[in-house]
């Protein structure tokens, strides 16, 4: 379980996160929904220790990730996988090498075993046979799915998704949403998804947190959001011209 308590983050005299409180329950998908520039990605990067907050704590299975040493932080990060908005695949490595990197660096697995795991991960995301391609040869949707394959190969407890459907057409967005659900069902992964995509929220969320101007103004079930904050959802859709 991840518990975020009174989290504050400031960039150049501007408070981006203003006292965030949120509990991310194991085995469930929590969606943080809000327009761009409201601190969603900053929150996600705080959870994995890429950004240090000014104040507050983030307890990962009881351990405050904001206060641990760098060495311990690297150990704790092995529980996580992060799917970046643009995929952030290493452009000097092939798809196979991208996915195998974690296993090669952090395990003593033999190459045959690594190869098997890479193939399995690619099969899960529906991209078998792309092992030898470089990221520049992949489409946007394929990059996202390879990034998910890289995420699941380390069998993480938590997967954090930063705008998983942004920039994808409806078919690819649907495939990614279904993939997020499948990973939860198949591996029991705990997911945190930040998005402005209402369809994504509706498809994957067990729990929804609404973020606006650095504050969480609602945390609850998606049915409640659709009931109580329909206007907010409409405005969000309009702001993106959906």
């Amino acid at each position: 379980m991840i518990e975020i308590r009174d989290l504050w983050k400031r960039f150049e005299n501007k408070d981006v996160l203003k006292g965030i409180n949120l509990t991310i329950e194991d085995g469930k998908t929590t969606v943080i929904l809000g327009p761009s520039g409201q601190g969603k990605t900053v929150l996600l990067k705080n959870i994995v220790g890429l950004i240090k907050p000014e104040r507050g704590s983030i307890l990962v299975d009881g351990e405050d990730i904001t206060k641990v040493s760098r060495r311990r932080l690297f150990e704790l990060r092995k529980k996580f996988a992060f799917v970046f908005q643009g995929g952030a695949l290493f452009d000097f490595l092939t798809v196979r090498e991208n996915i195998a990197l974690f296993l090669r660096m952090h395990t003593k697995m033999k190459e045959e075993e690594i190869e098997k795991r890479v193939k399995e991960a690619l099969k899960v995301v529906g991209l078998s046979g792309t092992e030898e391609l470089y990221p520049e040869e992949l489409s946007g949707g394929m990059k996202k799915r390879v990034a998910i394959a890289r995420a699941i190969v380390s069998s993480p407890k938590y997967i954090l998704y930063d705008e998983p459907t942004t920039g994808l057409d409806r078919t690819n967005a649907k495939a990614v949403n279904n993939l997020i659900n499948r990973l939860k069902e198949k591996y029991g992964v705990t997911s945190v998804v930040v998005t402005h995509d209402i369809e994504c929220m509706e498809t994957v969320a067990d729990k929804v947190a609404l973020l606006k101007e650095g504050k969480m103004f609602f945390v609850g079930k998606k049915e409640e959001v659709e009931e109580k904050y329909l206007d907010y959802l409409y405005k969000l859709e309009e702001s993106y011209g959906i």
């Binding site: 990067k45 994995v48 890429l50 990060r77 974690f102 660096m105 380390s154």
Partner: peptide, 9 residues
Amino acid sequence: QIDALETLS
């Protein structure tokens, strides 16, 4: 990609 390296420990 630098952040991605960090998240891969």
